[in-house]
Structure formats: C-alpha cells, structure tokens
Amino acid sequence: MSETADAVSGVAERYATALFDLALEAGALDQVSGDIASFEALLKESDDLKRLVLSPVFSADDQLKAITAILDRAGLGGLVGNIVKLAARNRRLFAIEGIFKGYRALLAAHRGEITADVVSATPLNDVQVAELKDTLSAMAGKQVIINASVDPSLIGGLIVRMGSRMIDNSLKTKLNALKIALKEVG
C-alpha cells in the first residue's frame, strides 16, 4: 500500500510542478487557484464525477471524452483544463486531487505561506479564524492559510496540523485519554 501511495504522490508532484511552473510563467497563479477550486467544487457535488476520476474501469478515451464535456460545460479551460485532460489522457486522473494539493503547496511556498489544516467540532466563525490565523502565524513566523473542516465527533476543541506539527486539543481525545487512565487505575 505504501508503494502505491508513493507512486501516486510522485505522479501528483510531477504534474503539480508542471502546472505551477506554467502558471508562474503565464502570470496566472491566482487564475489557476480559482479554476482548481471550481473543479474541486464539481468533484464535491457529483458522486458520478468522483467515480469517473477514481475508477480504473473507464478507458483513457472514455475518461477524456467525459472530462472534456464536463470541463466545457463548466467553462473550465486554460491550464487547469489542460492538466485535467492530460491526466485523463495518460490514465492519471486518479491523482488529480494530489496534483491540486501539490499545486497549493508550491504556491504557498512561493508566497512564503504555510497551510494549517484545522478540524473543529463546529464551524469556526470569521473572528475565530482570524484569531487562530494570527496565533499560528506568530508561532510559525510565516503567513498562515487556514484550511478548515468540521468533524462533529470531536465533541469540542480543535485539531491543528501545520507542517510536521499536530496539536490535538479535542474533547474526544481528552475523553479517550481519561478512559485509558481510568482503566489503568481500576
């Protein structure tokens, strides 16, 4: 399984680097970011599109025809449209999410930013996001971009992943630790 993950990340990294280099050369870094967000929104909305992207059952020609129609209908062309079509043509469409993640990482590094993945039990409001961003920026010494998501199973608190650091201040983790401690005592 690890070899497969490494192969996917290697493929995604090469495509992401190519996309970033082309976007930088064309002065279209923000345009590409917007197009990536639009394509990801399509992926999120459609289970059929997810199946098309992830399934090895479809031939390269079928994937290319379908993805071209979807991109045309969504009005997505340019560099993102081309990289998605290229990935489909080369039977690498399964790596598209990794490609986009890699692009974002390259863009953040280019801008001197770092991304923090924040998982909370409930959605964070704008004030909370701003305070968290300021705190993490001071801690990292760089501008921090917050990638927020919600996991109600946390009950309360946050899990923050920034680079190689992880801070788990969730109520779920604290309760699990307490449960283990009580088992040891009793």
Score class of each variant (00 low, 15 high):
Glu3Gln: 13
Ala5Asp: 10
Ala5Thr: 13
Asp6Tyr: 04
Asp6Met: 10
Val8Gln: 14
Gly10Phe: 05
Glu13Ala: 14
Thr17Phe: 05
Thr17Pro: 01
Asp21Ser: 09
Leu22Val: 11
Ala23Gly: 05
Leu24Ala: 12
Ala28Gln: 14
Ala28Asn: 10
Gln31Lys: 15
Gln31Asp: 15
Val32Ala: 04
Ser33Cys: 00
Ser33Asn: 05
Gly34Thr: 12
Ile36Phe: 01
Ser38Ile: 09
Ser38Gly: 12
Ser38Lys: 15
Glu40Val: 13
Glu40Phe: 07
Ala41Arg: 13
Leu43Asn: 09
Ser46Glu: 10
Leu49Met: 08
Leu49Pro: 10
Arg51Asp: 12
Val53Arg: 05
Leu54Val: 02
Ser55Met: 10
Ser55Asp: 11
Pro56Met: 10
Phe58Trp: 13
Ser59His: 06
Asp61Ala: 11
Leu64Gln: 03
Lys65Val: 11
Ala66Gln: 12
Ile67Val: 15
Thr68Trp: 03
Ile70Phe: 11
Leu71Phe: 02
Ala74Asp: 07
Ala74Thr: 08
Leu76Pro: 11
Gly77Cys: 02
Gly81Trp: 05
Val84Asp: 06
Lys85Pro: 05
Lys85Trp: 05
Arg89Trp: 02
Arg91Leu: 14
Arg91Thr: 14
Phe94Ile: 14
Ile96Tyr: 02
Phe100Gln: 02
Arg104Leu: 09
Ala109Pro: 03
Ala109Gly: 04
His110Gly: 04
Gly112Asn: 08
Gly112Arg: 05
Gly112Met: 10
Glu113Cys: 09
Ala121Tyr: 04
Thr122Tyr: 09
Pro123Ile: 04
Asp126Pro: 00
Asp126Tyr: 00
Gln128Arg: 04
Val129Tyr: 00
Lys133Arg: 14
Lys133Ala: 04
Asp134Ile: 10
Leu136Asn: 06
Ser137Met: 10
Ser137Gly: 10
Ala138Arg: 13
Ala138Asn: 11
Ala140Asn: 03
Ala140Arg: 06
Gly141Asp: 11
Lys142Thr: 11
Ala148Lys: 01
Val150Met: 00
Pro152Ser: 01
Pro152Glu: 07
Leu154Ser: 04
Gly157Phe: 02
Leu158Pro: 09
Arg161Ser: 02
Arg161Tyr: 00
Arg161Asn: 06
Ser164Asp: 15
Met166Leu: 15
Met166Asn: 02
Ser170Ala: 02
Lys172Pro: 08
Lys172Ala: 15
Lys174Trp: 07
Ala177Pro: 06
Leu178Ser: 11
Leu178Phe: 14
Lys179Phe: 08
Ile180Glu: 15
Ala181Lys: 15
Leu182Glu: 09
